[in-house]
Every structure is written in C-alpha cells, then in structure tokens.
C-alpha cells in the first residue's frame, strides 16, 4: 500500500509535464495546420502565423516548472497524496488549456489571414485561455510550496 501511495506521488509529480506535453503537442499541431493552410492563401506575413502557432507550447514549460517544484518537496508517504492531487489536476488543466488554445489560435490565424487588421485583436481569446493556464500554474506552485512545510 505504501509503495502504491508513493507511486501516486510520482505520478502526480510528472503529470504536469506529461499532460502538458500532450496538450501542447495537440494545440501546436492544430494551430500549425491552420498556419500551413493560411500560408497557401496569403502572399506574405508567414512568420506571424508560424509564431502564433507556437503559442500552446507554453503549457509544457509550465508543467516542467511545476514538476521541479513538486520534486523539490520530495515524494514520501506524507506528501504523496498532495503531490498526486496537485500534479494530476494541474496536468489536466494544462492539457485542456493547450488543446483549446490551439483551436483559438487556429481561429485567430483564419480571421487575421482574411482581415490582417484584426491580427492583434484575434489573439485575445487565445491569450485569455493562456491566462487560465497561468492561474493553474501559479496556484500549483503556491500549493506545492505549502506541501510538507
């Protein structure tokens, strides 16, 4: 039983990176496909589409930072449960925020391709989704720091 609890602790520690990576991969793939499609239809400004399509990659970076913070706490019987809860739920939040951010970025690319003047404004929905990922990131760090203390 103890080893199972410890395993859950490790699962929670690595979940933000793993789930964040899955989410970022899906999100960047969606946005990247939209960027590639848009490049077929426009004559210039390819760089901004490619740059924008990398936006969902931030979630995996947040995941890595959270993983190091949780690792710093140390996985033992007293901390494993907390690490599991914090890590897994943060990972799920990062996963979904990256996936949906990819869709928001796709829409932004599609809109700004047709109407370049809305480029800045069209990023707003994706930026708002990023904000939610940042909430999960920051509060995971705050909670992680309080575990074992």
């Amino acid at each position: 039983m103890d080893s199972f609890v410890i395993a859950l602790g490790w699962l929670g520690t690595f979940a933000p990176v793993a789930l964040g990576a899955v989410g970022s991969a899906i999100g960047c793939s969606l946005a990247g496909q939209a960027a590639c499609g848009a490049m077929l239809d426009v004559e210039s400004g390819y760089g901004k589409f490619v740059g924008l399509s990398a936006m969902p990659s931030s979630q995996v970076i947040y995941g890595i930072v959270i993983m190091f913070t949780l690792m710093g706490v140390g996985v033992d019987e007293s901390t494993a449960g907390a690490l599991f809860g914090i890590g897994l739920l943060t990972g799920v939040a990062l996963l979904y925020s990256a996936m949906y951010q990819g869709q928001a970025v796709s829409a932004a690319i599609n809109a700004s391709k047709n109407k370049p003047e809305v480029f800045g404004l069209s990023i707003a929905p994706a930026a708002i989704v990023e904000g939610f990922a940042v909430f999960a990131f920051v509060f995971a760090l705050v909670l992680g720091a309080s575990v074992g203390g």
């Binding site: 969606l30 496909q33 939209a34 960027a35 499609g37 848009a38 239809d41 690319i109 599609n110 391709k113």
Partner: peptide
C-alpha cells in the same frame, strides 16, 4: 479530424 484546420485555413474568405 484535425486536418480540417489546414484545409479551411487555406480557403479564401467569401
């Protein structure tokens, strides 16, 4: 499923 992003983004707006 998700390759529609590429196709639809490549079509000019009507």
């Amino acid at each position: 499923d998700k390759a529609y992003h590429s196709l639809l983004a490549s079509l000019p707006h009507i």
